[in-house]
Design a protein around this nucleic acid. Structure first.
Lengths: 205, 205
DNA sequence: AAAGTATATGTTCACTGTCAATATAAAAGG
DNA sequence: CCTTTTATATTGACAGTGAACATATACTTT
């Protein structure tokens, strides 16, 4: 019904979703900087200007993709945080899941942190900021559980930032090949991740 | 005329250097993804195809810029590493210098780690890999000085990677605005940086 | 002086993002 | 049921891009 043949002017049922799926595919193939709006439209079987009815421009589409990515990361992180009652194990698991996510979908992950976008990030884009902070929240919760009483909000915040910065840096350097020469196997990645979380953990407590 | 030796057919002085300077300027204004080869040529006062005699393509120019950036970072890091005999203080200084470099020239720093480039980094580009590993070396040296005897090469390598990943992640998140809402002043940045290095340091030893 | 050669140019092509004007279909109001 | 409205999609155009090609240039070498 929705996906019939398209005559000139025919309405396309849920074009936005179709465009998103096409964009996902295109992103995973070409990467954020080479993603072409026209190619996405072509892949979705619509004219080149059709996407402008659903996204303000190319960056708008990329922002939607990034937001979706943070959405997925957030659910993964939330699940990992509640995987174990021991906050130490939960923290390790959180870190592993994070790096795993980044390495599984490197193009998406780089996009989420501003690759392929003019300026140097999404900055004040609320559409992206909301799921981003939601994906950050579970870490803070685990850090809170982990620290010995009494805990100040700044302690928690600082600890969470340290952890986040670390896993983010590790992920990026695994993706861009900086550590490719230094870390070979996937097991080595997991081991390095686990080990480093332990390092930070010892430093924090 | 001013410069002595010239290569056959060379009409401008050494166009490569002129192009690099123009590209630097363009990079600092537009960012890696919006840098246009034609605009660089225009800025250098030369035809649009002239750059192809000195760089294989757009990515070649970006790679040269990235390499130059790592060159500068390397000298800064080397200086910071020898600033103090106490390896702890040297490590703090190293971290501070690193983050400072990244925040001072965010567009360049992002480029150095693959922003604006198809694929997800420079990977096997030797031109950029060499100064990159040179900029990484001082950290390893300081970590070596820092760890108690006896030290294994893996210990040093792992510690250095942990530190590098952390400062890289911190830099990226400061640049892309992730921490902008959470960390306000420049002093707070310095303090967070210093504090975190201390955390990692405690964890390592 | 002539020959050789790396360097620069002008032209062209395919492609991109985005705007303007236009046509269409579905819903809303009579 | 028919008209009006409104969001959606299309065609066409424009400026800007990276890149390839053949050609002209000016320097080095012989």
């Amino acid at each position: 019904m929705v996906t019939g043949k398209r005559r000139p002017g025919e309405k396309h049922g849920d074009l936005k979703a179709v465009l998103m799926r096409a964009a996902e595919k295109q992103l995973e193939q070409k990467g954020p900087e080479k993603l072409s709006l026209r190619a996405v439209a072509r892949l979705a079987g619509v004219s080149q200007t059709a996407p402008y009815n659903h996204f303000s421009n190319r960056e708008g589409l990329l922002a939607a993709l990034a937001a979706q990515g943070f959405e997925q990361l957030a659910t993964g992180q939330a699940a990992a945080a509640q995987a174990n009652d021991d906050p130490r194990i939960a923290l390790e698991r959180l870190g592993y899941e994070y790096v795993h996510f980044a390495c599984e979908r490197p193009k998406l992950y780089r996009l989420m942190f501003g690759a392929g976008v003019g300026g140097e990030g999404w900055h004040d884009d609320e559409l992206v900021a909301e799921p981003k902070s939601r994906s950050f929240a579970p870490l803070g919760e685990v850090i809170h559980r982990l620290l010995p009483e009494p805990v100040s909000p700044e302690q928690v915040e600082n600890g969470a930032i340290v952890c986040w910065a670390f896993v983010h840096g590790l992920s990026m350097m695994l993706i861009d090949g900086t550590l490719a020469a230094r870390v070979k196997s996937d097991d080595a990645i997991a081991e390095l991740s686990r080990q480093s979380i332990a390092v930070i953990l010892d430093g924090l407590t």
